[in-house]
Nucleic acid binder design. Structure first.
Lengths: 342, 342
DNA sequence: ATGAAAGCGCTAACAG
DNA sequence: CTGTTAGCGCTTTCAT
């Protein structure tokens, strides 16, 4: 409650008006004489004055706060994305409000409304399901916003180039000489899993290694890990000739890794595995996962910059390339921290 | 900029005053006649009025926002803790502002100041290093706050019972009949790693299995994983008689798992491993890690409740028990999702 | 270059 | 039970 000194106290101590103090504090919009400015700054220092951002926000209609809603803050991918966005926001002097939607559409809606009530300057959303109604909500709130890690024709989206990521993963496996390759993924509509699957599949077809239907394993959302586990167990049992697996997310890969291990196949040795995402989890696993890695920091920075400059250019999808990080799981003899050794 | 309808618009439409509208909206502090209340609510609905929390906050000196600073939002433990705290805050109608300190004291200080500038109602901190100066900052700001996952005599702390967690881990290993047990941990001062190490060590000593000095592996912070990897590699090479490892965090365990695997020891088979933390990462690994699991949701809920009711009782440490989750890495033949099978 | 003053939208005395 | 009104602390127009 001891709200500390106000701009009036500073003005009084500096022997000037609140207007001038404000000009000094904000470097404008009007000029201030050097001598006055010095007195103001001295007063600020002596009083330990800190501006009340609430009042500022009310007046300026701008809070300096951004908002982010993800399906689950604790999942490695979203956690890393959150860190990246927070870093970018912090670097620009902004704060970040976060919320988990628990993969639930209603909860996502509530979280979004909470952000709007908090009067965030802009909002980011990694939608849990079909983003249509969320986009409508955001549009009606007339607040700058962007979809992250997911695209939709009606708004601005910051995403990875997932089709290319799928291609890279498949290509790497092809370079290893694999002929029997399975694909873990095939999600809904235009989500990353689906795009990556499409890219991988296209590449395999182009190299005369079309995926037989039985080797395209569909894993419902959001129990990716366990679904991938079961699907892989099944596949390896019925089709032992498989020598390589392309996982469309690290979670899929985790499930595949467990299934393969239980069945006695050694990943990186007699079974190759390449993943897509490249969260730190991929580096943690044993063997470390070769993965097409998402550019988290770039995504975060671009997301923040994009909502900060509402170019008004209408819906767009800003795509950022993912890059291959070679570790052990593909069979390359790389060191465990990702540097290729042979 | 289209700030939407204000309380005045609602008052006008309902044919009453702003005061009454406010009373209706806040259920007090004064009573309102049912008929009037109904008219107000109708007006609110018709106008799609949403209260401006900025103005409310400025007036009430209460933002409805909590703040959290952790060393790294993307690390599994902190990510899960963040989710838990956000869930608890959301359940109580509050928002959460987050910040990463990057394990840096100065950055932590900046993040804390950012929270204060945002006028959060209360703040949580998982300190990156010695929390003394951060505590001073928080105290001077006269804002309710709590340390989480770390204790300090000068303030209120929400933590796990880490000594007991260490004991539980060691006991489980002893029950398996292991005689040569190594300990991965031994952090600084009173941090969780150090407390867990102390607990484990005490239990081993009490059971006449004191840890020889060479089997207590110190892993500097925050490169736990790689340090644990190197330390374990070293230990297993020089002391192959070791049959069990007690890791004080999941990150230590990840490093140990990799080292053991590279050296040809099979975790859960000819080398037992028990970890402490129990993040989802533990369940993801192959083999799944038996771990003494932190009660994230309880910690989050208690943290929020504690700062919301500043009991004024002065510094305390509120301790919550961790519980053993048996999976594969200890040698128990549990199913992969943690249910004990034999 | 500076000061006075009008609000931003809301809450809560204070008066009926 | 309800209306009037004074601010919360700040920014910014309008004077000077």
């Amino acid at each position: 409650m001891a709200t500390g000194p106000t701009i009036r106290d500073v003005a009084a101590r500096a022997g000037t008006s609140t207007a001038v103090v404000s000009y000094v504090l904000n470097d404008g919009p009007r000029p201030v004489a050097p001598a006055t400015r010095a007195r103001v700054l001295a007063a600020v220092a002596e009083l330990g004055y800190r501006r009340n951002n609430l009042a500022r926000a009310l007046r300026a209609n701008r809070t300096g706060t951004l908002g982010l809603v993800v399906p689950d803050l604790a999942k490695p991918f979203f956690a890393e994305l959150t860190r990246a966005i927070e870093d970018a926001a912090f670097a620009r002097g902004l704060r970040l409000l976060v919320g988990s939607a628990h993969f639930d559409a209603d909860r996502e809606d509530e979280q979004l409304r909470a952000l709007l009530d908090a009067r965030v300057d802009a909002a980011f959303l990694v939608p849990s399901q079909d983003p249509t109604s969320s986009i409508t909500l955001l549009r009606r709130a007339r607040i700058p916003h962007a979809l992250v890690h997911r695209t939709h024709p009606d708004t601005v989206c910051i995403a990875g180039d997932d089709v290319s990521a799928g291609r890279q993963a498949a290509e790497h496996l092809l370079q290893h000489g694999h002929r029997y390759i399975a694909l873990l993924g095939v999600g809904r509509a235009e989500d990353p899993v689906s795009l990556r699957s499409r890219g991988a599949s296209a590449t395999l077809t182009e190299h005369d290694r079309p995926l037989p239907p039985w080797s395209m394993l569909t894993c419902p959302f959001p129990n990716l890990r366990d679904d991938a586990y079961r699907a892989t167990l099944d596949l390896l049992t019925t089709h032992p000739q498989i020598t390589a697996i392309c996982a469309t997310t690290d979670e899929h890969a985790v499930g595949a890794l467990r299934a393969a291990t239980e069945i006695g196949r050694r990943i990186g040795d007699d079974l190759a595995l390449v993943s897509i995402d490249g969260t730190e989890l991929a580096a943690y696993l044993t063997p470390a996962l070769t993965a097409v890695t998402a550019p988290f920091d770039t995504l975060g920075a671009d997301a923040v910059d994009t909502v900060l400059n509402p170019s008004g250019a209408g819906p767009t999808v800003r795509q950022h390339p993912l890059t291959l990080t070679v570790r052990r799981s593909c069979g390359c003899h790389a060191t465990h921290d990702g540097h290729r050794k042979s």
